[in-house]
Design a protein around this nucleic acid. Structure first.
Lengths: 216, 216
DNA sequence: AATATTTTTTAGACAAGTCTAAATTTTTTA
DNA sequence: TAAAAAATTTAGACTTGTCTAAAAAATATT
């Protein structure tokens, strides 16, 4: 098995790979809140274990087996998040930190039974897809609200920023998963947007519009 | 917070304290499958953190705060065991290993909600009492079947050995928590016992009789 | 009570994972 | 395209938790 540190590196590399096919040392260092030198050390270890493709100064990609490990960790993370929300009544901004610890529980049988216990949920509380036991899942086709034009609408289906402050803000604005929104106005000056959400209108910054995702 | 290693030491010391008020370095080493020298090193750290009372060559006891930490870990362990058995349908011989990992999940709120979710169970699948959130629980008054005389009976209420092989053996012999047993005969030669369990009779060794507990 | 045995501690070493500071490579810019 | 800047790696060090071998203390034995 892999150590906790190794698992966290693989997960970080996986997430970063979604934006850039080749992930740099500095990106990983920033994601894990550590120093570039530490990352280099770990990349050698992961490379020795054939979990990543690594050439000095060239950045990294996950190997097939590295990706498999990463996806399984993400499966565990998202299933535990779903459990915390659905069964233990936590709010969507509270579950991430706990799931960060729980995702490292090793038993495969445990996670398969948890999956069954919850009747095989397909999406976690933040709208992210939950991989099945074979690692398969729909990479969801979402786009940020920021790309919408005036009068266009969509259904809130995910978030790009998973931090508690952002989620708490969304909760307060009633901008939660499943809600239908429509763009009423886009302010030229700062590209902020006025949205119709159910009976109310909300004014959101471009920053928020870029981090809130709707189904295509 | 305490490290994983520290938590495991505290838990081991707690369990050993139930038999001997003063716990020795070698006992801890045996319990944790490590070397006496390593134990000495850790005892110094735990002593520095005021979690144990330690004087060279004299063995250790837990301080009040050390015991509090240990009991909370045990609370987590037993609640997770209960969850695995009741909600995920694992068998009683399968839950211990997983709970060894899960007991280190740190969130107190999580464990309190898990407790509520399961409606505040008082005993885990092995008959051990589950401490409440304040660390209170009935230290149960059980005795091994080995102390019974012929014709005496009791209700199986706990085990002293929590290993999977022992539990699997008990399961096969139908000697599970809640079953009523009666001593039919004690063999002089090896002190093995013949028990009546429901409609059947079972012959158990003295070894087994010492590790199977009944309510007083 | 003196010696032998067992238990415990100390000393020194190692692996994992991290760090700072310096060196090297790559990329950018003038 | 050569110098400057940024990114990355190397070198050496530190912490945690572990180990083996040797020393010291406690306990048991004769």
């Amino acid at each position: 098995m892999n150590t906790l540190a190794e698992e966290n590196y693989l997960k970080a590399i996986y997430h970063l790979s979604l934006n850039d096919s080749n992930v740099s040392t500095n990106q990983i260092a920033a994601a894990l809140n550590t120093k570039a030198a530490s990352v280099t050390d770990m990349l050698k270890k992961l490379s020795d274990k054939a979990l990543i493709n690594y050439a000095k100064y060239q950045g990294v990609t996950l190997t097939e087996s590295g990706e498999k490990v990463a996806v399984h960790i993400i499966r565990k993370h998202r299933l535990w998040e779903y459990f915390l929300l659905e069964k233990l009544d936590f709010k969507w901004d509270e579950v991430h930190e706990m799931a960060e610890e729980m995702e490292h529980i090793s038993s495969v049988e445990l996670i398969d039974r948890l999956d069954k216990f919850m009747d095989y949920p397909r999406y976690d509380p933040h709208g992210d897809p939950i991989p099945d036991r074979d690692g398969n899942f729909k990479k969801h086709e979402l786009k940020p609200i920021a790309v919408l034009q005036v009068n266009e609408s969509g259904v809130i289906s995910g978030v790009r920023d998973h931090s508690a402050p952002f989620l708490q803000y969304l909760e307060k604005q009633n901008l939660t998963i499943g809600k239908k929104i429509k763009v009423i106005e886009i302010i030229d000056y700062d590209h902020s947007m006025i949205l119709q959400v159910e009976q109310n209108q909300t004014h959101i910054s471009r920053e928020v519009a870029k981090n809130l995702l709707i189904a295509i």
